[in-house]
């Protein structure tokens, strides 16, 4: 089957890089918030950077949420959230006060307890896969990915944690509930491991 990727653009800064990554791998890539494009896509990607509350405000303003929720949550279209695009899937976030999230995966967004290490957590960090998932197939045991964040996903159900990383404390680096997947790191900046992860995502149907 031909892969058609729809990259949702709520105004996040990293859309261009995410688009570059998928353009090198998929048959067709669109950056679009149009309902028809979301429906025609085989895979939906939500990139994000910046603060949780601002991201959600713009998501509600700019994205066709009803259509996205129908094709992703009801029809099971593969979905990948990146960084803040993963965090917005939680029920609520606590960056600059409490904000309600999309609530697709149970849990909340809280500041990373990095102990003596400075925040934001910026740089290459190895990721430990906790649960077999096609997203991490054929990636070596402890692949390095590039992170830029201060907040982390605290899932309610530990079974949704696909991978963890450690920076002061251990935190959730990748989350998944059936077809809904999210990664805290930036595959579009993670070279070989990022390219492989994006390929793995496109292989999910």
């Amino acid at each position: 089957m031909k892969t058609r990727v729809c990259i949702l653009d709520y105004g996040s800064g990293n859309v261009k890089s995410v688009c570059n990554l998928f353009s090198s791998l998929a048959d067709h890539v669109s950056v679009s918030n149009e309902a028809a494009v979301v429906e025609a896509a085989t895979h939906v990607v939500l990139p994000g950077v910046g603060a949780f509350a601002a991201a959600l405000r713009r998501i509600h303003e700019r994205l066709p949420l009803e259509v996205i929720e129908r094709v992703v949550r009801r029809d099971g279209k593969p979905f990948l959230g990146i960084c803040v695009g993963m965090q917005v899937l939680a029920e609520r976030g606590f960056e600059f006060g409490e904000t309600e999230g999309l609530g697709w995966i149970g849990g909340s967004i809280e500041q990373l307890d990095s102990r003596e290490y400075p925040l934001p957590h910026i740089g290459w960090n190895n990721v430990t896969v906790q649960r077999a998932n096609p997203l991490f197939s054929e990636l070596e045991n402890s692949p390095d990915f590039y992170f830029v964040h201060s907040f982390v996903f605290r899932p309610r159900d530990p079974l949704t944690v696909l991978a963890t990383a450690a920076y002061g404390a251990e935190f959730c680096a990748a989350i998944g509930s059936d077809n809904i997947l999210g990664v805290q790191f930036h595959p579009e900046k993670s070279q070989r491991a990022g390219i492989k992860l994006a390929k793995n995502f496109l292989a999910i149907s």
């Binding site: 290490y117 957590h121 740089g123 290459w124 960090n125 190895n126 390095d144 920076y167």
Partner: peptide
Amino acid sequence: MKKNRLIP
């Protein structure tokens, strides 16, 4: 663990 970086 976070890695030290080598940057051209």
